[in-house]
Design a protein around this nucleic acid. Structure first.
Lengths: 188, 188
DNA sequence: GTCTATAACAAGATAGAC
DNA sequence: GTCTATCTTGTTATAGAC
């Protein structure tokens, strides 16, 4: 539909509920209440519930991509620093304000075919960034294994943190990123 | 409820649907159809839909525990072999017949409080097995890092395979287990 | 143990007034 | 842009016959 600031705000609130309850269990009435409007009014901003999901996932993936690019730009150029920067950025989008990127990862398969086609290139761009960094790490003999698999294992380990991470616990995303890097890199 | 062989068979079919569609999107009518009965008849075997989920998850976790114990029993006693055996067993329960264990991992939070309390000890027993094996691997200087985190990262990497694994692809669970172990162990 | 029939309710979505 | 009111459909679960 459109791209108003109001819609942006509603998308943000939807992301929060989708993470808390899951997409399927989040009703349009719950969404409306969280937004302080009635359920009928929601459909002025979004054609249907699917479109809300697509908006959240687009936002989440775009966010992750932007943050990752920024992190690489600020990072030292050596493969270890870049690997750490990527892991840190990924965890920040997942754990810091537990929102749209989590939905992008965990509710991807709830997208209908059209939306999935439209968003796949975004996700691919994000994964391409990871592949680049991991290729360099493997070439530098910092990490061992087949890139295609290493990439999936590493992202799996990071994505799963959503399930157990406690924001009041002893470690912050930065430390988790460090620990993951320690686990998969060969000591110099 | 009871524990008839019929119920066991129905549980197996339910697991399949829960993996394919997700618990929330699987209706009792779909379950009944898959089982070749009408939806009303389902409630002769299970009190409600929740109880089906609990049965599937109990089955899946128990399976994983049994298989892991068997794998450790058959394994060579060195830490590397045991680590590989655990990873292999875990992936077998997740990828080989894509069923109850996947549901246990991915639909755990859909359990109601009572069922969760009842099943937590099973899950803890399974994780205790992992912790033992990882403690040994870390003590042998095979893997580097804090056990609590290593355990979560490794299980995350393994659990996420469900999302991308292609049974017709070039690698089987055994090879994936090998690649994961290669990635996280220090070369001798 | 399974069937038919249906109760009881919750869901997504629409229409038209304001 | 939001409201009220409502339509339509789908959902879990129950009751009683077979």
């Amino acid at each position: 539909m459109n791209d108003s600031p109001r819609r942006k705000e509603l998308t943000r609130l939807a992301a929060q509920l989708f993470v808390q309850e899951g997409f399927d269990r989040t009703t349009v009435r719950m969404l409306a209440q969280e937004m302080g409007i009635k359920s009928g009014s929601l459909f002025h901003h979004f054609r249907d519930k699917q479109e809300i999901l697509a908006a959240v996932i687009e936002e989440g993936t775009q966010n992750a991509l932007t943050l990752a690019r920024a992190a690489l730009k600020d990072s030292a150029p050596d493969p270890l620093s870049r690997l750490h920067a990527m892991a840190r950025a990924h965890l920040d989008t997942l754990l810091t304000d537990r929102n749209a990127h989590v939905v992008a990862l965990y509710e991807w398969r709830r997208l209908d075919d059209g939306a999935r086609d439209h968003l796949t290139h975004l996700r691919d761009a994000y994964e391409a960034l990871w592949n680049e960094v991991l290729d360099d790490a493997i070439a530098a003999d910092l990490v061992t294994g087949d890139r295609a698999l290493v990439s999936r294992f590493v992202l799996g380990a990071l994505n799963w943190t959503v399930r157990w991470y406690d924001p009041d616990g002893p470690r912050d995303p930065e430390q988790l990123a460090h620990e993951l890097v320690v686990m998969i890199t060969r000591r110099p």
